[in-house]
């Protein structure tokens, strides 16, 4: 699936929830199912420090596609990471570099991507793109 198709799917899924409780419960459950980052990557080299929660990210490239794994010590942050990884992972570096995160507004989670939120997510998206740029350079 392309990034745009995955985003449309996510927006569709969230449109089924008519209250914040269900939306957040879904995110919390997603957070619980997120494939954990391999322990050897859950180190200070892979950490993105927010003031409130910590995020760890690792990237690998296989068949010209970048695969991300990630984790957080806060479950809601982890749920949003699960959504972001679903969108960005297993995609070509160019597509990752060009993708935007506007769909987060549409599913009512905008506040979590505010730079003042200090949960590490804004920096995490930057980090995903940095990995994509690095792998893009390798492909060239």
């Amino acid at each position: 699936m392309t990034i745009e198709e995955i985003k449309a799917d996510i927006v569709d899924e969230f449109s089924m929830f008519d209250n914040w409780e269900d939306r957040y419960q879904y995110m919390i459950d997603l957070g619980k199912t997120l494939p954990l980052i391999a322990p050897e990557y859950k180190t200070d080299d892979h950490i993105i420090k927010g003031c409130q929660s910590k995020v760890w990210v690792h990237a690998d490239m296989e068949d010209d596609k970048v695969a991300f794994t990630a984790d957080s010590d806060a479950i809601i942050t982890k749920g949003i990471i699960a959504i972001l990884i679903r969108v960005f992972s297993n995609q070509h570096p160019t597509d990752i570099i060009e993708a935007d995160t506007d769909f987060i507004d549409e599913i009512g989670l905008k506040e979590h991507l505010s730079p003042t939120r200090a949960n590490g997510l804004v920096s995490m998206i930057k980090q995903l793109k940095m990995y994509a740029i690095a792998y893009q350079t390798q492909l060239n």
Binding site: W20, Y24, I28, C51, Q52, S53, D73, A74, I75, I76, T77, A118, N119
Partner: peptide, 22 residues
Amino acid sequence: NIHPYDVGTLLDKMGIAVRTGH
């Protein structure tokens, strides 16, 4: 077993302002 940030986020959805963090 629950991160303070998660509790603070959900309480805010309910109109309750607390502080979380260090």
